[in-house]
């Protein structure tokens, strides 16, 4: 007999592994500007809303950030600060939107909100340590690329929730 909590923890690990998988895919896609990100690894976090408890949700987030740092080897560089600030603020904001509006908001809105929070916090850190005033110049580029990629991710998440058999069994089995 396998205990209930153990299965839940393994589900968290599986979601975080998906995030890792997606970040390696993102890493392979060439980008015209460094620091521009698609946020593919955010997809499991978006989908995790409504499935996990708060504790499990933040555990997933921690694993995502640490895993990304480990696999890209940037865990001891300050890239991890960008990643941590972006992931944490976007996760908190997405959770907030989700708990406030429940079914009144689709994953597009959640994804947009997360990307906005992430972009703002990363711009803030970039102003603090890397670019100083020049951050203002990259801000529009940063925000608009985030806008577009988060809409696409949100639409995909909406589709996935409707069509995926795996996801619907997860939702049903939730106790």
């Amino acid at each position: 007999m396998i205990s209930h909590t153990k299965v839940r923890i393994e589900l968290v690990a599986l979601f975080s592994a998906c995030a890792l998988f997606l970040s390696t895919i993102e890493y392979m896609i060439p980008k015209p500007v460094p620091f521009m990100r698609l946020g593919l690894a955010n997809l499991p976090i978006i989908l995790a809303l409504g499935i996990f408890t708060y504790r499990e949700y933040f555990l997933l987030l921690l694993l995502k950030v640490l895993g990304q740092g480990l696999i890209s080897g940037t865990i001891f560089s300050y890239i991890i600060l960008f990643s941590l600030a972006g992931s944490l603020s976007s996760a908190i904001f997405m959770l907030l939107i989700f708990t406030l509006f429940k079914d009144k908001v689709s994953r597009v809105g959640i994804s947009l909100g997360g990307a906005l929070a992430s972009a703002i916090s990363q711009l803030f850190i970039s102003r603090l340590i890397l670019f100083k005033e020049a951050t203002y110049v990259i801000a529009p580029l940063f925000l608009f690329s985030g806008l577009i990629s988060s809409i696409i991710l949100g639409i995909f998440a909406n589709e996935f929730i409707v069509k995926s058999k795996w996801y619907s069994t997860l939702k049903e089995s939730k106790v």
Partner: peptide, 26 residues
């Protein structure tokens, strides 16, 4: 295809406004 909700649109407009405002920072 799941429908977009009014809240989605509001968040989109908020994002777009901040994006456009960021140009003035230049």
């Amino acid at each position: 295809m799941k429908k977009l909700t009014p809240i989605d649109i509001i968040i989109f407009i908020l994002f777009l406004t901040i994006g456009i405002m960021s140009f003035t920072l230049y």
